[in-house]
């Protein structure tokens, strides 16, 4: 208990010192940031403004020994700088630089009283490390969130609903389908049918690696929902293995109009739409 009180007492002294020398220490820190070529994506003014906020939050965290405010600030900062291409090592780098700048100023202040210096550092170091940790973790979490968001966006883009002819849509499905993606696919397709006034849809599943009962049921539902909108669905690229599995697990393939490959599917779709495709001249 006594030790804890002493540590708090020392931290208070430390905080007073950091407040008093705010302008000079901040300048020193900003200087070393540009010296080590960190945050090159940001302008000098921006670095200075952020450095001021970080410095103040840092001192506040030392003073209150609570990290929530700093955590929130770190997340907010990350949100702003991640889109500008700031990397994890830069964020960790600047926080460690600040730690060092402050430590050096402590050396300078207490160089005549070695014992006191040691005690001050004992109080300072764990707190400083915890701050560095908090900021780094906040940044990484924010980055992960951004990555997740981007993955979702890619997923949405990865299944284009293509109009190949008037009233004919193609939906090539590639990769792994989970229930969430299956639902997204269906909603996209149904909207596509409405906006393009499609009458026939070819869903090509050549690129689908595996299909379990859940995904197969989604496919059947997509076919049924499309029909409710007045569109006929042709499924192509169903491998014999997948077809076999579907029949075994009791999926009613009778409800699905299947054609071996994409080309055959498009040809059938054209017939349904009343198109007749022929060569302009006999090839030589």
């Amino acid at each position: 208990m006594a030790k804890r009180d002493e540590s708090s007492e020392l931290l208070r002294e430390l905080v007073a010192h950091l407040r008093q020398n705010r302008t000079q220490l901040r300048e020193e820190w900003v200087g070393s940031i540009s010296e080590t070529r960190l945050l090159t994506a940001m302008t000098k003014e921006e670095i200075f403004a952020e450095a001021t906020s970080v410095y103040d939050s840092y001192v506040e965290a030392l003073e209150t020994e609570t990290f929530e405010a700093l955590q929130a600030y770190a997340r907010n900062l990350s949100e702003r700088i991640i889109p500008r291409g700031v990397e994890t090592h830069e964020v960790v780098g600047i926080v460690l630089l600040l730690r060092d700048v402050l430590a050096r100023s402590l050396f300078a202040k207490y160089q005549t009283d070695f014992k006191k210096l040691n005690r001050i550092l004992d109080a300072y170091e764990p707190a400083a490390n915890r701050i560095a940790n908090t900021v780094a973790v906040g940044f990484v979490q924010e980055r992960e969130r951004v990555i997740r968001q981007q993955q979702e966006a890619i997923r949405e883009l990865s299944t284009p609903v293509l109009q190949v002819r008037e009233r004919l849509l193609i939906l090539p499905i590639i990769g792994v389908i989970d229930p969430q993606r299956a639902r997204q696919l269906t909603e996209q397709l149904l909207r596509g049918i409405r906006t393009n006034r499609a009458k026939v849809v070819v869903i090509d599943i050549t690129g689908v690696a595996a299909m379990d009962v859940t995904v197969a049921n989604h496919l059947v539902q997509t076919v049924e929902a499309s029909r409710l909108l007045g569109a006929t669905v042709i499924v192509t690229g169903l491998s014999p293995e997948i077809a076999q599995t579907l029949v075994t697990i009791g999926v009613d393939l009778g409800k699905m109009n299947t054609v071996g490959d994409l080309q055959g599917g498009i040809e059938q779709a054209e017939r349904l739409l009343g198109y007749k495709v022929m060569a302009l001249a006999e090839p030589n």
Partner: peptide, 29 residues
């Protein structure tokens, strides 16, 4: 005619497929 995409999605979840009944996109169709 005129079943909305979202309504169609809910219908098939419920197992309502209007089997044996003709459907079309809109009045014109």
């Amino acid at each position: 005619v005129g079943i909305q995409p979202e309504v169609a999605f809910a219908m098939v979840q419920l197992g309502l497929t209007l089997e044996g009944v003709a459907t079309a996109l809109d009045l014109e169709e």
